[in-house]
Write a protein that binds this DNA or RNA. Sequence first.
DNA 1: TCTGGGGTCCTAGGACCC
DNA 2: TCTGGGGTCCTAGGACCC
Length: 433
Amino acid sequence: MSYIKLRNKNNKKIALVDCNSFYVSCERLFNPRINDLPVVVLSNNDGCVISRSSEAKKIGIRMGEPYFKVKQLVREYNVKVYSSNYALYGDISRRVMHVLKKFSPKIEIYSIDEAFLDLTLVKNEELESFISELRSLILKWTGIPVSIGVAKTKTLSKVANHLAKKEKVGTKSFILNHEEEVNNFLKKFPIEDVWGVGRKISKLYKNNNIITAYDLKNANNTWIKKNTNVLGLKTVMELRDISCIDFESSSSPRKNCCVSRSFGKKVLDYETLKESIVAHCLNAAEKIRIDNQVVKSVVVFIRNSPFNKNEKFFSRSKKVDLPIPTDDSILLTKICVQSLQEIFLQGPRYQKAGVIFSGLSRKGKYDEGLFLHERKEKSQNLMKAIDKTNFRFGRSMITVADTGFCNSWKMKRSHSSKIDTSSYDFLPTINIR
DNA sequence: TCTGGGGTCCTAGGACCC
DNA sequence: TCTGGGGTCCTAGGACCC
């Protein structure tokens, strides 16, 4: 009881800053002619719609929808379509986050287009002008429009952000503060839009007459705990103004690293599959070396399409635990190829393959013993040389022979805007003192 | 014909031990 | 011949996020 009372004195101000239609906004930066047109950005392989301009939303294109299903609408309304360009989006994202850091020392970068900001120190009467200035400076310095929601907990700031996008067309910002006002909005807020409530759980809630965020706020704790898990209960608490989901200011090192791709066209043969696995493995190894990490166990997986009704779903994986954690591309590639040999079966029309590195840890955490020292040093020098050359001359300048040269498995990217990171010079530059 | 990719956290249940 | 119970650790799979 005292715990809840203590937590009830929550006077925090948590802002969620979210870039509007982020990938579309990035494409528009380089092509202002599409500013008022319906625009969508597609996932890898031109598979699904993953970002939509407001004009595209209006004509009924839904998030996550397979591209082939919306082609008719695209033709009918002359929608501009782009393949995704993550190098570009990553770069713009860093610019946006850089600006945010100037406004609050306490920031949690939540995803490529979202960040939580602790604005508790901003005075109540200054909050509105503060976030208004924040919005306009982000737009001025990066060209990206954002929405901002402020509330006492992360979950409520997510709600506020939704409302900013939906209800506040002009200012795109919303402060949820007084309890009565919060309740009124929660009564209109669909349960499936609450952060942390996904497809499965919202179905369960609806079956039990929990239809809005307000219903969930007033749900019985014991019932929630019994029917969901602690995360479900945390969400309920957060709706009640009780902060339960911690603010993670410093980015903690990642625990897993997965590289996988769907193929541009179905793959039947072992050799092509092997080329893709080797490429994914090299890619993942490079990623963990950048973060100064080593991997303890390696999973290789292959599968055919789960959507094809004419073929039985086939999915296989093989996990290998390494005696000593490593970041050595050559060793990791050998392990991946051996694993693939073990799980490969002739027959399925393979649609996707990938590798997962798990049990990542900081390099140098384990002492491998003296007898390995010399070999390790050789391997490290080689890896450094590979990374340096690839960084200078482009990815895959140096690679292992198994990656192959035909690359027939590579992704489909029919709508690329072909903007590369070297062409950023005309962008507004950040100049903050 | 064509349905993404990369993460995190939680839990149930099995293996193992005393 | 009788064959317990409680604890820990690990892992696969599920649910969620953007």
